[in-house]
Amino acid sequence: MALNTPQITPTKKITVRAIGEELPRGDYQRCPQCDMLFSLPEINSHQSAYCPRCQAKIRDGRDWSLTRLAAMAFTMLLLMPFAWGEPLLHIWLLGIRIDANVMQGIWQMTKQGDAITGSMVFFCVIGAPLILVTSIAYLWFGNRLGMNLRPVLLMLERLKEWVMLDIYLVGIGVASIKVQDYAHIQAGVGLFSFVALVILTTVTLSHLNVEELWERFYPQRPATRRDEKLRVCLGCHFTGYPDQRGRCPRCHIPLRLRRRHSLQKCWAALLASIVLLLPANLLPISIIYLNGGRQEDTILSGIMSLASSNIAVAGIVFIASILVPFTKVIVMFTLLLSIHFKCQQGLRTRILLLRMVTWIGRWSMLDLFVISLTMSLINRDQILAFTMGPAAFYFGAAVILTILAVEWLDSRLLWDAHESGNARFDD
Rank of each mutant, 00 (worst) to 15 (best):
Leu132Thr: 05
Gly118Asn: 02
Ile303Asp: 10
Ala83Asn: 03
Phe386Ala: 02
Lys178His: 04
Glu22Cys: 08
Gly346Trp: 13
Leu323Tyr: 01
Cys31Ala: 00
Glu215Cys: 07
Pro249Thr: 07
Ala56Gly: 11
Ile400Asp: 03
Pro325Lys: 02
Tyr218Val: 04
Leu277Met: 07
Val275Asn: 11
Trp84Tyr: 12
Ile378Glu: 00
Ala196Arg: 00
Lys178Gly: 00
Met332Gly: 13
Ile319Ala: 07
Glu228Trp: 07
Ala397Arg: 00
Trp408Glu: 03
Ser364Phe: 00
Ile14Glu: 13
Ile287Asn: 06
Glu215Tyr: 12
Cys343Val: 12
Ser193Pro: 05
Cys236Lys: 00
Gly421Pro: 05
Leu145Gln: 10
Leu255Ala: 15
Leu37Lys: 12
Ile106His: 05
Phe326Ser: 08
Glu42Ser: 12
Arg226Pro: 08
Leu197Ala: 04
Ser193Lys: 03
Glu157Ser: 13
Arg25Glu: 13
Ile8Ala: 11
Arg412Tyr: 00
Cys51Ile: 00
Arg144Gly: 05
Asn291Phe: 15
Thr5Leu: 11
Asp99Cys: 12
Asp114Tyr: 08
Gln382Ile: 14
Arg17Tyr: 10
Leu373Pro: 02
Ser376Val: 14
Ile14Tyr: 15
Trp107Val: 03
Met72Ile: 06
Cys124Tyr: 02
Ile371Arg: 00
Thr349Tyr: 10
Ile287Cys: 04
Ile319Arg: 00
Leu139Lys: 01
Ile288Thr: 01
Glu157Val: 13
Glu215Asp: 07
Ile131Ala: 03
Ala175His: 01
Ala385Trp: 03
Arg259Gln: 09
Asp410Lys: 00
Cys236Phe: 00
Gly246Leu: 05
Ser206Glu: 05
Asp63Cys: 15
Gly188Met: 13
Gln382Gly: 09
Arg226Leu: 07
His46Thr: 12
Pro325His: 06
Arg294Trp: 03
Val210Gln: 15
Cys124His: 01
Val324Phe: 15
Leu3Cys: 14
Asn422Ala: 15
Ile287Leu: 06
Leu66Lys: 11
His90Gly: 06
Asn422Thr: 15
Ala175Arg: 01
Gln345Leu: 14
Ile322Gln: 07
Ser372Gly: 12
Ser48Val: 14
Arg245Phe: 08
Pro81Ser: 07
Phe123Val: 02
Asp227Met: 11
Thr402Asn: 07
Lys111Val: 02
Met147Ala: 04
Met80Trp: 10
Leu278Tyr: 05
Trp92Met: 03
Arg412Glu: 00
Lys342Met: 10
Cys236Trp: 00
Ile339Val: 07
Leu404Gln: 15
Gly118Lys: 10
Leu69Ser: 14
Ser286Ile: 03
Pro219Ala: 10
Leu401Val: 11
Arg216His: 05
Phe38Glu: 04
Pro6Cys: 10
Leu336Asp: 03
Ser364Gly: 13
Asn310Thr: 09
Pro254Gln: 13
Leu353Phe: 13
Trp107His: 15
Phe326Val: 12
Leu306Ala: 01
Tyr168Ser: 09
Leu377Thr: 05
Glu21Met: 11
Gly188Pro: 02
Leu205Met: 14
Gly113Pro: 05
Glu419Phe: 15
Leu79Asp: 03
Val232Gln: 13
Ala70Phe: 15
Leu149Thr: 10
Ala73Pro: 05
Val203Phe: 07
Leu156Met: 07
Pro24Ala: 10
Val331Glu: 03
Val357Glu: 09
Val152His: 01
Asp181Gly: 04
Leu368Tyr: 03
Leu306Asp: 00
Pro6Gln: 08
Gln108Pro: 12
Ile126Pro: 11
Leu69Asp: 13
Ile185Val: 06
Ala223Glu: 13
Ser420Ala: 13
Gly396Met: 02
Val275Thr: 07
Leu132Ala: 12
Gln104Glu: 06
Ala398Phe: 02
Asn44Ala: 08
Asn310Phe: 12
Leu283Tyr: 06
Ile116Leu: 10
Leu306Phe: 07
Ser262Glu: 04
Leu165Asn: 13
Asp427Tyr: 15
Leu165Gln: 14
